[in-house]
Nucleic acid binder design. Structure first.
Lengths: 120, 120, 120, 120
DNA sequence: GTGGTCTAGACCACA
DNA sequence: GTGGTCTAGACCACG
């Protein structure tokens, strides 16, 4: 589980994405309790402030909620998780098509290139 | 030809990319002279320094070279332009696959989603 | 540690070279933290922008990398530093021979002149 | 006789150096008449103004003098030419030593490197 | 406090 | 008029 943080984009965002990914892939399941901010910060080799910010960022998406005294938990609502996954997937595809069209390719050409690439 | 500058990434980088795109799409052709820094700056609604930075950034890619007193010109080497286009396309595809796989999809599923999306 | 800036070549380049030299000579060692942009700018009697440019220029060589919020550091890869030194030395020698030959001297004559000069 | 002009340094200076070289190497001899500014400009593919500037630059060194109506001539004083050559050579050597010493090498090491290089 | 970006405005050498 | 450099001073996100 490497955290692989670089300094090209804000660290707290990279962490947010990383945990989102863990949730989408089922490494964290519905209702699971997250480690404490301090433990996560140590694990990621990051300032606790930064981890805190990443987590509160995560809370705003509804994926995680905090119980005052007992810690943070992954949402019990599995729909939210599914929605997140489809929304992340769709965002990727849409952006991909937009970028490819900016490069002057039409849908036919894009499909061709993608299947060529997958064939390799 | 709107410049559409947002504040998500540095303006000078957006400009660099924008002009790269113009070259790849053939809006600027091999050997063409670019407008002067000042003119481009006015057109883009940006400080001349910022435009200068974008252009000297572009220069490092070899796509453009500057003659100190007569202006900036698109490279005469058309291969550089072609290479740029294929490299940009490949980069998009590779990144796309990496991101999709991070979301737990295999190649088959990716192909399916892409052709579904194109069909819409 | 005088900065000795003249106006023969761009200041930011002179600064880049100056710091390169410091690294090659071991005045800065692998992993060292550089002073902040602002401090260096004051020390060199130069505008912070100019120092910034010199440093980001230096960064492209791989000799230095910047951590957005904690500062700039000399590369930990000592090989890069060694390679830089040998490449700088070779460049000097090659240029020297080219220039001397342009003046109509052969290798024998060059060697003679060099050892005469060193003897003085 | 290619002129090989780049835009890294002022063109008129490159031309000045080029002609100086011709004189030092004896391609132009004492008392020779230079082609007209216009012809030289055409040959070098350069604006006549630029060639003019290069030549008047050359006159200031005493290497060339102009006779109002009949053109420009290489100096008849062969000593000036010899002095030029030795001064150019010395300048090269001195600069070379300075630069090498800046890189932390002593005279012994420099001699060693130079003879190694010549042996190649 | 750190690096990074941007604007505004000035100046220079070159052609 | 062209590219290029520099200063002064401001603002931002990040930690």
């Amino acid at each position: 589980m490497p955290w692989n943080l670089n300094s090209d984009s804000p660290i707290f965002l990279q962490i947010t994405d990383y945990i989102k990914n863990d949730i989408v892939l089922g490494r964290y399941k519905s209702g699971d309790k997250l480690p404490s901010v301090r433990d996560l910060a140590v694990e990621a080799g990051v300032n606790p402030n930064t981890m805190q910010r990443a987590l509160s960022n995560l809370e705003q998406t509804g994926l995680v909620h905090s119980e005052r005294t007992s810690g943070r938990f992954i949402t019990e609502d599995e729909n939210i998780i599914k929605e997140l996954k489809t929304s992340l997937v769709n965002k990727q595809i849409e952006e991909f098509f937009i970028n490819m069209k900016k490069l002057g390719l039409n849908e036919e050409e894009i499909l061709q290139l993608v299947s060529d690439f997958a064939g390799k």
